[in-house]
Design a protein around this nucleic acid. Structure first.
Lengths: 340, 340
DNA sequence: TACGCAATCGATACCGGTATCGATTGCGGG
DNA sequence: CCCGCAATCGATACCGGTATCGATTGCGTA
């Protein structure tokens, strides 16, 4: 096994003290330019790499932050992560991604692993299954900076970034109404999520504003957020089984939109497909399904802002008590007009 | 700021030595059961968390491994990551994901950050842009265990996991031939990738075996692997501009398949769309596009195996000189029959 | 009685950087 | 000539665990 060279090796070789080498390598003003050059040259020549653990241990900081999302194979989250990374790299932070797979157990384990000094802060979008927040509250009480995005909770005060889910849902539902549909169903996400309630509200508001009746039987929620395609198919099968079938569906999330369209393709002939509108940040879904209206969230921007807020918390010298709750606007993408 | 309790605090409180506490917490056989219980109880009660940096620094191991892929918003890679995680968590390893975005610079930076004792090993699927492998060779020469999967290189000997790309490509192309198509184009990936050459081979083999002529003008490759939709559209536009248009296209990757279908939807009426077959691990793509034949790779299994091989390298007491190059089989998914 | 050995625990060095405090040198001003 | 101060660098403790070596005790056995 190869033994990497340390700061002490350099010190010995150049007849300097370890502290001088350390300072030279971090470009300290107290070190003579000439000395710096010697150190840096020697370090590069011998392929020196600073040991991040030793550094973190001493400094009490790791310059890395943890991101907890349900899954990365999701346009919304992957775009958000890109936004997070764009800020992080600029400010010298490293991003550690971990997936909860919408499972409570997984979320707890991942956070424990990330927490306690291994990361300087946490960006969290809650898992669908999680009802008990004590693992997060604990970390927060221990002083770990946390920022929520998208799927937030109010167990304690901190910065949050969300999009205007109510309005997005309303716009999508309204677009279906504008296109002449009246029997509009709602395929909802897991019931405990903040976004679920907000989007349901928007859906109901739109119906109400247009004098349409609310029908509980037209609402179906997926407890696993569509990560199990079977539950989506069940919901679609249910809609298809209704004596009075919906002629349109408003879908609450990216994955559910995928699953919903896919399920209809599988379970019913094209002539019987309802119009579908829903939340999605996919680049191609709207193109693949010309009849699909989607609500896009500014995912990249959300990631960017969340990361900036987190860095603010981390680098603040004093405890922060004044928290921001940013709400970003959504964008409605109408169906493409395809010739032929 | 909250000050987490350390092993020394526990030692002092229980009137033990730090080493005893350390051993008690790692369930050493040299510690009396009674003492262990006292220590563990106190630790739990006071919410003790072992500091991973100190631990890693001393042990020279971090029990975490790094994964470098081009992007996570990709069915194939996200499934592979799930496979990796399934093994990792079982063996007590933590997985750090990082994305190269198919950019050379990004790949180098990420690896540097992961490397040098911050991770115990690396699982790599090469970026499309990378032609210079010295950053990886360096790490390897320093003794960092590395396993390649999917997009491999042969700059040095190590374990690798791939799927049978040649055969997969052949099967897909053959399926198009079987369906009666004769003018089959190929939308290829970035030229330097191992998978690109292998899949091109399979495509050409299939044509040859069926007595069809190879036509260079029917092959177009995307240097950014389709991450820039514009380059896919250009290729599609090119195919559409040919005096003799292809009646079918074999597409080399997941993202390219998405992009290709999407581009055709955008650029040509449905009646002029060619049949499309290609590599894809998407759950829904084949359902959304009934006419799409896809080659699935055993992504989860690839991740699983790669991780197991990496752990073997990491935990081997002696240098390993006998390397495995596993090749897994692909599966052809024929178009669904949709009524209506 | 003496010795060997297992069980249990302590003291300490060390992992590799870095914060802290201090030492040395040189020079300008009073 | 002395003092103050800036510039430059060294010695050392320390971050929080843990490997290493040793110490102590008790007990069975030669």
């Amino acid at each position: 096994m190869f033994k990497p060279i340390t700061i002490k090796d350099i010190a010995q070789a150049l007849e300097l003290s370890p502290s001088t080498v350390s300072r030279a390598l971090s470009d300290s003003y107290e070190i003579n330019e000439e000395t710096k050059k010697r150190v840096i040259e020697y370090a590069e020549k011998h392929n020196y790499r600073r040991n991040p653990m030793a550094s973190s241990l001493r400094q009490g900081r790791s310059y890395s932050i943890g991101v907890v999302v349900c899954e990365v194979a999701n346009s919304f989250f992957s775009q958000a992560i890109d936004g997070i990374e764009s800020v992080a790299y600029g400010k010298g932070y490293h991003v550690i991604i971990s997936q909860s797979h919408d499972a409570y157990e997984r979320e707890v384990v991942n956070m424990q692993h990330l927490a306690n000094r291994a990361v300087d802060g946490l960006l969290i979008s809650m898992s669908a299954e999680t009802k008990d927040f004590s693992h997060i509250v604990n970390l927060h009480e221990q002083g770990l900076p946390i920022v929520f995005f998208d799927r937030i909770i109010d167990a304690f005060e901190t910065h949050t970034v969300t999009s205007n889910n109510r309005e997005g849902a309303m716009k999508a539902t309204q677009s279906l109404i504008d296109r002449g549909f009246r029997k509009i169903a709602h395929l909802a996400n897991a019931p405990h999520l903040s976004i679920t309630a907000e989007r349901l509200e928007g859906y109901e508001d739109a119906l109400r504003q247009n004098g349409l009746a609310l029908d509980e039987s037209f609402i179906r929620c997926c407890h696993h957020g569509g990560r199990i395609q079977q539950e989506v198919e069940e919901a679609v099968r249910y809609f298809l089984s209704l004596p009075e079938r919906p002629d349109a569906v408003f879908v609450a999330s990216d994955r559910l939109s995928m699953g919903c369209l896919s399920a209809y393709n599988k379970l019913a002939p094209k002539s019987e497909h309802p119009a579908v509108a829903g939340f999605s940040n996919s680049d191609v879904l709207d193109l693949l399904q010309p009849n699909f209206t989607c609500v896009r969230q500014p995912a990249f921007e959300m990631g960017r802002m969340a990361m900036e807020m987190l860095i603010q918390l981390i680098e603040s010298r004093y405890p922060v008590y004044d928290f921001e709750n940013v709400v970003l606007q959504t964008e409605l993408m109408m169906p493409h007009r395809i010739s032929g």
